[in-house]
Design a binder for these strands. Sequence first.
DNA 1: GGTGGCTAACGAAATATTTCGTAGCAAAAA
DNA 2: TTTTTGCTACGAAATATTTCGTTAGCCACC
Lengths: 140, 140
Amino acid sequence: MSKKNIPRPTESELEILQVLWQHGPSTVRLVNDELSKRRDVGYTTTLKLLQLMHEKGIVARDDSSRTHVYRPALREQETQGQLIDRLLEAAFGGSALKLVQQALGNRHTTREELDQIRDLLDNIDPQAKPSATDTPDELA
Amino acid sequence: MSKKNIPRPTESELEILQVLWQHGPSTVRLVNDELSKRRDVGYTTTLKLLQLMHEKGIVARDDSSRTHVYRPALREQETQGQLIDRLLEAAFGGSALKLVQQALGNRHTTREELDQIRDLLDNIDPQAKPSATDTPDELA
DNA sequence: GGTGGCTAACGAAATATTTCGTAGCAAAAA
DNA sequence: TTTTTGCTACGAAATATTTCGTTAGCCACC
């Protein structure tokens, strides 16, 4: 029993998850206020969504007091990872390279961010030299 | 009139688009055969999907002969770019950096791919040295 | 010139997603 | 205590997505 029921948040659900990830445990009111900053959405719509997410196990809730408090039941990184996997399969034929190229290519990215990615690359593969000769794969 | 009706392919539609991008103009039969390699899907299901995609303008078709031939009406790169934008907004709060970190971090990527990404980075920002001092932004 | 094999066109069901209105209850305010 | 306010639960509509069955036409072949 490693990974079975992988919840697949919908777009609306992700919107809410982001609020919860960012603000921590929140009431319906708070979540709705946040969503309302971006678009027009009714209170009961947000409530219903949170209730459905609760049923699906996407969020947990504390209903000990009259005003319930919801919190994410999915970890941000893990969820993001799954979403990338989905997109990778759905649109990039599984090639992470293409995805990254696309993400960096057609987009305005600051030099600072580019540097951070370079650091990341170096951490993933400390052997490889940035741009010049490759280290031989086999050790004699 | 720059960008208005941006078609948003569903997951099934993307599956089909990938086949078309990969194989070029194709008959329903061919598309369905490809899809069938991966999962169980009826011929008329694929047909219907292609017809709907045609209505939506996601694919174009040549129906001059009895057996229609479909081809993508969306460019692969452009579509992939939009999908990344979507995901960026939906799950990463707009941070391309986080997305790339996630894409590269929790995944098995070959050294070759990592090197290609390094090249990409150098191309995007030819000024920056891989890790050392930054070039001053302003010219005196 | 009838039959079998393909193909497109519909119509429709099953499911998933999004959005609210209404009702009932509890707590706070008047 | 009455009124007002705020919250949850529930039901249901509107829409979008996925999946097929059925029907009818075309073509090649026997």
